[in-house]
Computed example of a mutant assay.
Amino acid sequence: MARFGAADLQREQFRRYLEKGNVLDMLTKVLVILYEEPEKPNNVMDFLKQHLAIGPEPSDALALRLEMIELRQKYQLQLEENKELKAKLAQFELPKEAGQTE
């Protein structure tokens, strides 16, 4: 019987912890929104993430993804330009043997 008392105490402490962090209120509100939704979403996890504001907003994620693509393209252009400039520089450099004789 002491086990049940300890388990109940732990459960109560955990419940208070969740209440203190407003977790229970947030979950309740989101679940009520989901319950009142006339057309239930196909992906419940996405619905919860969106309404709990977990992670970046979808528009932010899209903007970041587009920025990443743009930066990768710029990076590739810089690599190509660097390669071309090194090739041009190599044309003007003296061979090591010729440079040492002077």
Rank of each mutant, 00 (worst) to 15 (best):
L24F: 03
A63N: 13
M1V: 12
K83R: 15
L64R: 13
A63R: 13
I69M: 11
Y17P: 01
E84S: 05
E84V: 08
Q13Y: 02
A2Q: 12
L66D: 15
K29D: 15
G55N: 10
A98G: 00
V23N: 03
K40H: 10
P95D: 09
H51N: 15
Q13F: 08
D8H: 04
L52T: 07
E19L: 07
E19Y: 00
L24M: 11
L64E: 15
K74Y: 01
N82M: 11
A2P: 04
L62K: 12
V32K: 12
E81V: 01
G5I: 14
L52H: 03
G5S: 10
A7N: 04
F47W: 03
K96I: 10
M1P: 07
A87I: 11
I69E: 14
A90P: 01
L52M: 15
A61G: 06
R65W: 06
K86F: 09
R65Q: 15
R3K: 14
L94R: 07
L66I: 02
R72P: 01
E93D: 05
L9P: 00
Q73R: 12
A98C: 03
L18V: 00
V32N: 07
S59R: 05
T101Y: 03
Q50K: 11
T28R: 13
K29C: 05
Y35P: 00
Q100P: 00
G55W: 07
F92V: 08
K29I: 05
D8T: 06
L77T: 04
L52E: 06
E67W: 02
T28G: 05
T101W: 04
A7G: 01
K83W: 04
V44Q: 04
A2S: 13
K83C: 09
A53W: 00
E37A: 09
P95C: 01
Q10S: 11
E39F: 02
M68C: 09
Q78A: 15
M45D: 07
V30H: 05
M68R: 09
L24V: 14
V32S: 05
E57W: 02
G99K: 11
Q73F: 01
Y75V: 02
A61M: 04
R65S: 14
K83T: 13
E67F: 01
K29T: 12
K86T: 05
A7R: 12
R16G: 05
L9V: 07
K20L: 12
L89W: 02
A6I: 10
A6M: 09
K88F: 03
L66H: 08
V44M: 10
V32W: 03
E97M: 03
E84H: 06
R72E: 15
D25K: 13
L52V: 02
N43L: 10
K83F: 12
N42C: 04
E19S: 03
Q78S: 13
P56A: 14
Y35N: 12
R15A: 10
P38Q: 10
D46Q: 13
M68H: 11
I33R: 11
K29N: 13
L34A: 06
R15D: 11
L62N: 07
I54E: 10
